[in-house]
Amino acid sequence: MYTITRKKVLASGVIEMGILAPRIAKAHKPGQFLMVMNREESERIPLTIADSDPAKGEVTIVFLEVGRSTIELGEDFKEGDSLFAVVGPLGTPTHIEPFGTVVVMGGGLGVAPIYPICKGLKAAGNTVVTIIGYRRKDLMFWHDKLAGASTETIVTTDDGSFGTKGFVTDALKTIHDGGRAIDRIIAIGPPVMMRAVSNLTQPWGIPTWVSLNTIMVDGTGMCGGCRVEIGKESKFVCVDGPDFDAHLVNWDEMFARMKVYTAEERAAILANHECKLHLDNIKR
């Protein structure tokens, strides 16, 4: 079970994997995630489902080698290997209905999880304007795939090496200031990017949703480790989310909670992997 059917390096430290998980592939809806355990004593890590193929019984994950377990998954596991456990699809699916024009934003690794959302929104009859952003041209992946799932696609790079120079927020501002009617915004990416989108759109009064990826153990509502304040109320990202109204998220609290195990994580990586280059990823 849970055999890795394919593995591809999309960019430096960014890996795409196909995993045989027929029940998950069949049940998956956009916005949901799964929990992966590499080995019997590995931690359970939440990863968003980037695509699913019920006919093949396969789900796709895209992850960044950023912590102890993702580095291990990316470095030690090959096509044909099996993972100890994969459970899902978890979380409440993304709310999809005919909204009108929806801007879907993916930053860096966030480009992968927005793919099923764009597909779903488009199938529901929305005009899907997708803004995807990368740091540099050589870190780009899936931009063609996203273009196929969207009505329009805008690519940004921080250094201008491809598409529009700047951040995804700059592109969003350009569209908005150009007078485009936007009915809804969905943003997935690094927490700093999602907060920046939230801050930008709050004065506009456009409903903005983000997908949070906090620290979890079980992913089914049991531990509460993922909890974060949403509109003055504590919510569990794993079951109440992962999608939340961006304007209600207590971002400061979420940022602090993401760092609970930074010290433990660094120590574990230093102890377990000779390659310390990955520590650069953690700092980000």
Binding site: N38, R39, E41, E43, R44, R68, S69, E264, E265, A268
Partner: peptide, 8 residues
């Protein structure tokens, strides 16, 4: 050492 899950 062996387990992947941290605790404070």
């Amino acid at each position: 050492d062996s387990a992947g899950t941290p605790i404070r």
